[in-house]
Each structure stands twice: as structure tokens, then as C-alpha cells.
Design a protein around this nucleic acid. Structure first.
Lengths: 148, 148
DNA sequence: CAATTGGTTGATAATGATTTTCATTTTTAT
DNA sequence: ATAAAAATGAAAATCATTATCAACCAATTG
């Protein structure tokens, strides 16, 4: 699964522990690399560890997000969605959101070009606005294959 | 304020009316061209029209969003934020969000370049994924001038 | 012009996601 | 071990948003 020793160290350095619930939640991401909502994660974890509560899922997601291990997104469907940070497991990608059926498509087809462009833009923006950029989100909205 | 006859016509064509509450809400946007939350809009409207309720604000925002007159955003602060569509009053821009103080900076400094890039990307993505793209959002997250 | 129709509204209740509380349990440092 | 610090589950609380519903209002019809 996800590289544990690494994670363990990162959490410890920040004064946190890699507990069973937290591992279980990370494993859900590893098994199911999608854009999961808190409830979906809770349900998935609950199958193997019925004892783990929803509040813990929220707390853990918040923790992982703050540590940068997980990204938090809002695709407009009324709940937050989370995915493992690209550095942890997935390649850098952006999103296309179907506003009809809600499907979210990850794409990384033209990433090299995009990243290059974004990087340059970030430099210019940072300079002009004295704004330190840490991350970005690029979302396209429209209708998918099946919904047109 | 915002071009009324135009709006009136657009709403009518879709079977809606340009009522006083709706005008009041549009005027808030015209006076205060920011990224307003429903509650902020409600409070602003409430000063001049104490009779207008929060539910109406939500309904109107929903209507305007569906008609494409207003864009709905989520910058991660737990509430939706709205702004007039670029065609109505503002120039096309993207956003930088300060994750410390929540400030949202509009920028349109390098828009020509960005739009060109996005347009090309959209063509390629549409073709490859058979996905009809209607709109996009580009957000940068980091720390602003004062928060570094 | 009165009657009818259908969009619109305000107030309130309901919903649903997320957060907080708090007593208890687990882990770590002493 | 034992005290101190973190973490947890369950339940209550919060907060943004949506649905309900009776009252309104505007436009159309006869």
C-alpha cells in the first residue's frame, strides 16, 4: 500500500501518530484512487473496521489535508472530495467535471505542457502580486461522453 | 447599474420575471463587485430592502447561476461564493486564494496568454475525451502579500 | 374588468454535511 | 508503571442550503 515508514515519519515530525484508523483511511485511498467524499470513505472503512466513526474520518481527512498528503476538492456537488496528493501515489492531473451526471474525469494527457505553462504563470503572478503560490486547481466543466 | 433591458429580456425569454428582489440582488453585485456569499448578499440587500428574505436570495442566486448571468465558486471556506459573469460586467479573470486570511485576488494580467492556452487545451481535451467543455476554473492557492 | 393561471415571495421547518463536545481509551515520555 | 498528551467514538451542535406552504402579484383570458 502507501509507503508507511515515510508517512509515519512525516506525521511524527509534526507531532501526530499514525494510528490504526488513520492507516485504515489511507488504505482506502490506496485501494480506491478516486475522489472520495467523507461519507464514502467512512462506509469503505466501516466494512473492515466497524468501530471507526465518522467524526474520526473527518478529523483524519482534515489532518491529512493540512499535512499536504491529501487534497481537498469541491466539484460543486455539495460535499468535499478528497484524493491522495500526487506526490504520494498518483501522477499530477487536473479534472473535468460533468455537470449533468457528476462524473469526474482525471486527465493528465497534456500535463507536461500544462505544468510548464502553469509554472511560468506562477512565477509572473507571484512577482506581480507578491503572492506565494503553493498549489493550484484547474477544473473544466461540461458534459461527458454519455451525457451530451 | 447593470444593463436592465437586456436582463429583463433574457429572464422573460426563459419564462421568468425581473422582480424587485431580483433587481436588488443584481444591484448588490453591481455595487460590490466581489466574490459574495449568499449571506453577504442577503445582509447587503437587507439594508435597503429589509423585507427580502434569505431564501429568496438563494433562489435568485440559483436562478442567475443557471442562466449563466452569475458564476458560482467554492474557494474552500465552507460556503459558495458568487460573482457576475464576465460577459455581464467584469473582464475574464482567474483567482488567487490566500489560505491564511481567505482573501481572494482576481487577476487578469496574463489573460490573453492564458485564454489562448486554455482554448487550445480545451480543443485537445474535448477531442480526446469526447467531453464538451462549457467553462473552466483556475485557482491558485497560497499566501498573500500580508500573510507571508 | 373580474377571474384564472402560474411565477414569486417570506417565514419557517427540514435537511445534510461538517464540527464540536466530552468522557474514555490509547500512546508516549518520564 | 504513571503521568501527560493524543486520539477516539458517540452524540449533540452548528451552519449553509433546500424544501414547504400559504399568501402575493403579474399577466392573460374570457
Amino acid at each position: 500500500m502507501v509507503g508507511r515508514p515515510w508517512l509515519h515519519g512525516r506525521l511524527r515530525n509534526a507531532g501526530f501518530r499514525l494510528t490504526l484508523p488513520r492507516q485504515a483511511i489511507l488504505n482506502v485511498f490506496a485501494r480506491n484512487p478516486k475522489h472520495l467524499s467523507a461519507e464514502e470513505i467512512f462506509l469503505s472503512v466501516h466494512r473492515n473496521y466497524p468501530g471507526i466513526g465518522l467524526a474520526t474520518v473527518y478529523r483524519t481527512l482534515d489532518l491529512l489535508t493540512q499535512m499536504g498528503l491529501v487534497f481537498k476538492f469541491d466539484f460543486g456537488d455539495g460535499r468535499s472530495r478528497y484524493e491522495l496528493a500526487s506526490e504520494v501515489i498518483k501522477e499530477h492531473h487536473h479534472h473535468m467535471v460533468c455537470t449533468r451526471c457528476g462524473q469526474i474525469i482525471d486527465y493528465s494527457d497534456f500535463m507536461k505542457k500544462e505544468i510548464k505553462f502553469i509554472k511560468e504563470l506562477e512565477v509572473e503572478l507571484s512577482k506581480k502580486h507578491k503572492f506565494k503560490i503553493n498549489s493550484h486547481q484547474i477544473h473544466f466543466y461540461g458534459s461527458c461522453n454519455r451525457c451530451q
